[in-house]
Design a protein around this nucleic acid. Structure first.
Lengths: 209, 209
DNA sequence: TTATTTTAATCAATCGTTTGATTAACTTTG
DNA sequence: CAAAGTTAATCAAACGATTGATTAAAATAA
């Protein structure tokens, strides 16, 4: 059945996403990936052409789902800039756990700045998210709601940097926060509220007049 | 001469540090490293025992230099907590460019949390830095200089996360900041002042009463 | 049947590492 | 002093293992 084929493809992609995020591109062998996915090694090449093709398709699959998430927020005139920021932080906080592996993989790939098309695609994809933030922040400045001398780019770097730091270095941040951030329950009950609350307080102090 | 030996070892370590940071541990082959360093392949094993030994020694070499930097700051009673934070941010800002490759390599390795001794060593090394920050922040709270409800752990995550985000995703942050952060001159004249200034303003707003 | 999917076996290439030989500098011996 | 011995450093070549990829045959589906 066609359904089964899609399911199997998706299953392989799910497993590969995790393994790549754990071991990196070079560290994750096709044998390991196929083994974890419970399929024959040749299936990877059969479905995705090559290891790189598999790697690319992991991103292709996500990119489309990222597109339509934040579009509506920036254009809403009924609420103030700071409320938009709070909403943005709420969404951003929720995303921490959801796309854990992919986020790690994403910034891992962005890190080694290859000259590929992929890196450019990923950068553009992330910049799309950033654009919404930019719009909100500049709107806040224009309205006089935010201080006029805030560093918009650095605020964005702080927002994403803090999140990445926590989820990309779990050994460090677990020691720092005094609870295991690899535990899903801890993420839900402690990390999410903590990072949301902190970010709101931090940016409220910095942004608002 | 013994000097030459040390120089050659150090030269290999310098090159390996760069190559590892660019390609990752698995992506950097011993042939590539030895080729870039202009030495015979066997020299890596002769000097460092193994590829992992070489990798370890890169960190060992830096760890000691990291140790004694922040020790004196935390114990100085003559200046206030906020002044200490400012000094910390100054040092932290300077370190951005100096140890660019190493920082990248460090957090790249921390990211893929292997069960090695290395990861534990690195975590402890970073925690030592963090401890000093912890001391300063808690001192500021105790003295009533800082707000009493600040999230110390998250402040640390923000401080390092923001910096890592910028230096680890140069393609993104260059687009964000509108200048090339891989250009040494730009780092010196624009990035360093900008990140120092931003961090001071951000934390001043969040920490101070 | 025909077409698609899956398998085990195999490929050349590359991996990290080891080897034995060679060089050059230093130490010891006569 | 010079000859003999010792050492560390360096090299090209090769090692077995593993890599990503391919094949042809078998199994399944249409």
């Amino acid at each position: 059945m066609d359904k089964d084929k899609i399911d199997k493809r998706d299953h392989i992609l799910d497993v590969a996403e995790r393994v790549f995020s754990e071991k990196g591109f070079d560290g994750a062998s096709t044998r390991l990936i196929s083994g974890e996915a419970g399929v024959n090694m040749a299936m990877l090449n059969y479905y995705f052409g090559s290891k790189e093709g598999l790697f690319l398709e992991i991103f292709e699959r996500k990119i489309s789902s990222f597109q339509n998430i934040l579009q509506n927020l920036g254009n809403d005139d009924s609420i103030g800039a700071w409320e938009k920021m709070e909403q943005y932080i709420e969404m951003y906080g929720e995303k921490i756990v959801n796309n854990n592996c992919f986020q790690k993989l994403l910034y891992q790939e962005m890190g080694m700045n290859r000259s590929n098309d992929l890196s450019n695609k990923l950068r553009d994809m992330l910049l799309k998210n950033v654009t919404e933030l930019n719009k909100i922040l500049n709107e806040g400045i224009a309205k006089g709601e935010f201080k006029k001398d805030i560093d918009v780019a650095m605020v964005i770097a702080t927002l994403y940097g803090t999140k990445n730091y926590i989820i990309n270095t779990p050994m460090m941040s677990s020691a720092l926060l005094h609870y295991d951030i690899l535990d899903d329950k801890m993420i839900e009950t402690k990390l999410k509220p903590q990072i949301k609350s902190f970010m709101k307080n931090l940016l409220k102090a910095y942004l608002l007049n």
